[in-house]
Amino acid sequence: VRPGGLARARGAGAVSVALGGGVLDHAGLARGGLRIAGATVSADGRLGAGRGVRATPVPGVSWDQEPLAALFARPAAEAVAELLAQDAEPGLLGCAVRVEGAAGDHLLVRELSPDGTVRADAPLLRLRPAHPHPELAHTANLRRLAGRPGLALRVVGRPDPDRAATLRPLAVGPVPGAAYTLRLPPEWRDRADLGYDRLQGGHVTGEAPAPAPDPVGPGPDPLADSPLWRVGRLLEAG
């Protein structure tokens, strides 16, 4: 961790991490990992890189394997309600969704059922850029996805504690078995980092389904309709 502005953050993905003979850039480390032996850990969580440290690059875990599979194990509304009930910063959650369209710089989606369909009463969710600065790819990637109604995605992100039914996505990937979904380069390992990777038209496979007969509407809000969420917001507002 080093202090710095946006220029440093923009180039962080290509900066090498050298530890115990293992060298990866941050982008590779996000998709893979290092098996580390003999390292010391400081009080603030930093790893020491002394002579006795050994580090070996290892393949990353797919979103279908634990512990990442647990992020997708429950409906988004249920997972978000639990995360917002915690005192700490909301953690990560995952969900499979279908793209509906855009509202400003927000991507509108509906959650997919386990069978890959969308329930008639499925609530509308908003995916908001995790960071709005144009030098990072978050906003551009969401805009590109918004132009693909019907596209099936898996999303990993954090709930926005100040906005109901809103997630800040960090990465997206294909939905296994979906006819219209993402097809990412092999080196991306089935996940696109929305801040650093830039999605292109060639990253989509399949044909778009016929447009839905009804326009995108506000729909039920799984968080604002939650008594726990409403009470929490009332207490915060005084």
Rank of each mutant, 00 (worst) to 15 (best):
A130N: 08
L125E: 06
V156G: 02
P227R: 07
L223P: 11
G147A: 12
W229Q: 09
L124E: 03
D162C: 09
L92T: 00
V155Y: 02
P59G: 11
V15S: 15
N141T: 06
R233I: 10
R128F: 05
T117E: 11
S62Q: 11
P134T: 01
R119M: 04
A192Q: 04
W63E: 14
R119E: 09
P222V: 05
D105S: 07
V23A: 10
L24W: 01
W63S: 12
A49H: 02
P57V: 08
L93T: 01
Q200H: 13
R74Q: 15
L167W: 05
P211N: 08
W63V: 13
G177Q: 02
V99G: 03
G147K: 09
H133V: 09
P67Y: 09
G201S: 10
A14Q: 15
V17P: 06
G101L: 03
P222M: 05
L112E: 00
A39I: 10
L127K: 06
G157H: 02
D197V: 08
G28T: 08
G32C: 11
G157D: 03
H133L: 09
P209H: 09
V61H: 13
E89Y: 10
L223R: 10
L83E: 13
G217Q: 04
G206D: 07
P129M: 01
V97P: 01
A120S: 06
